[in-house]
């Protein structure tokens, strides 16, 4: 297996380096934690958008569903950390199964419209069932349970550093898992569906099954991200299921670049950072976000990661290196 497709080599090493550097370079560890949580959501969105070619406005449903379900089982059923996260994963997957099963019956703009409608519906459901969700106020006093493995308490996760390390560990596991998904028979079929759905079904793939499983995996990861977000904030706001959340996740995915999972970290990082830095200076910072999105779409079709790749390939040392390797492989 070559380096590029090995799930531990290549971009996984870059991801690990980013995880180590972020808390050192950024103004706060909490900010770094937030970035990784949204990077999870963007990565899950990337599996649909970048790898399958499905533009889903339903990601907020899974994010909010994960946040609410994990919070509820911790508040009412005394679930611990791991079991609450597993609950969120299952709920995210189940919601994605429902939304996906109906939405993939249509393609193109009708598919997009269906995910949008589901998103609106989820918001009003969350708003209406305020006994469960806290409605407009959100779910308050969400706990952050201690990390215990095999009856041993590893950490109470109360310090932001400890929680960051935990989130980073979760992120690393999901990242490696996603790399495996992409470089599998399933993942390569997703890319084939994105490239040419008609041909994919002509060569024997039941494309809807593949899209549905992509949805379920994406929903599971997004639900996990939502649960971690609730634990970070000690709070599950209604804004988690707003359409704006789905939009933000999509924007992170697109700005970062859809050709690689690393793009999702960059996308989440830049949006979360911009929000943090600019919102304190200027309340209308979302306008700048709009301008950035326009600039990326117009001038960096591969997103930030695509831009970095084309920059590095322009450096002479890189050319020499690739020439050498191609000599060797000959």
């Amino acid at each position: 297996m070559n380096k590029k497709t090995s799930i531990f080599g290549g971009v996984t090493i870059i991801a690990l380096a980013l995880m180590v550097l972020m808390p050192i370079l950024l103004p706060s560890v909490t900010l770094a934690t937030e970035i990784l949580i949204f990077a999870l959501a963007a990565l899950a969105c990337n599996l649909l958008l970048g790898y399958t070619g499905l533009l889903s406005f339903g990601q907020g449903i899974f994010f909010g569903g994960g946040a609410y379900s994990a919070s509820l089982v911790m508040l009412h059923l005394n679930f611990g950390l791991i079991s609450a996260l597993i609950t969120a994963i299952l709920v995210g997957a189940l919601l994605a199964l429902i939304v996906g099963a109906l939405a993939i019956r249509r393609t193109g703009i009708y598919f997009v419209m269906l995910t949008l409608s589901f998103s609106q519906m989820a918001y009003f459901l969350a708003y209406t069932f305020s006994d469960w969700t806290g409605g407009d106020n959100g779910l308050l006093d969400v706990p952050r349970p201690a990390l215990t493995l095999f009856g041993m308490t590893i950490s109470d996760l109360q310090s932001s550093e400890a929680f960051y390390i935990f989130v980073a560990a979760v992120f690393a596991i999901v990242f490696v898992f996603s790399r495996r998904v992409i470089h599998s028979p399933f993942g390569t079929t997703l890319v084939a569906i994105r490239e040419n759905e008609g041909r994919s079904s002509a060569v024997g793939f039941s494309t809807n099954h593949f899209k549905l499983v992509a949805f379920v995996i994406s929903g599971a990861i997004t639900g996990l991200a939502g649960a971690l977000y609730a634990m970070l904030l000690n709070f599950a706001p209604l804004s988690n299921v707003e359409l704006l959340m789905s939009e933000n996740i999509l924007i992170m995915t697109i700005i970062g670049g859809t050709s690689s999972l690393i793009g999702s970290i960059l996308g989440a990082g830049s949006i979360v950072l911009m929000g943090d830095l600019l919102s304190s200076i200027w309340p209308r910072w979302m306008m700048i976000l709009g301008a950035v999105l326009i600039a990326v779409v117009l001038f960096l079709p591969g997103g930030l990661w695509g831009g970095i790749l084309s920059l590095t390939s322009k450096f002479p040392w890189k050319k020499v290196k690739t020439n050498v390797t191609s000599e060797v492989t000959k």
Binding site: R180, S184, P185, F186, T189, E195, F210, I217
Partner: peptide, 28 residues
């Protein structure tokens, strides 16, 4: 599959024979 290599076009076409077995996302 315009953006994939010639070999990958053929491998994926061959993979079509696996039907739902190609849903395996845990193996290379």
């Amino acid at each position: 599959f315009q953006n994939l290599s010639v070999r990958e076009n053929l491998r994926i076409a061959a993979q079509g024979r696996d039907g739902l077995n190609a849903l395996k996302f845990w193996v290379p």
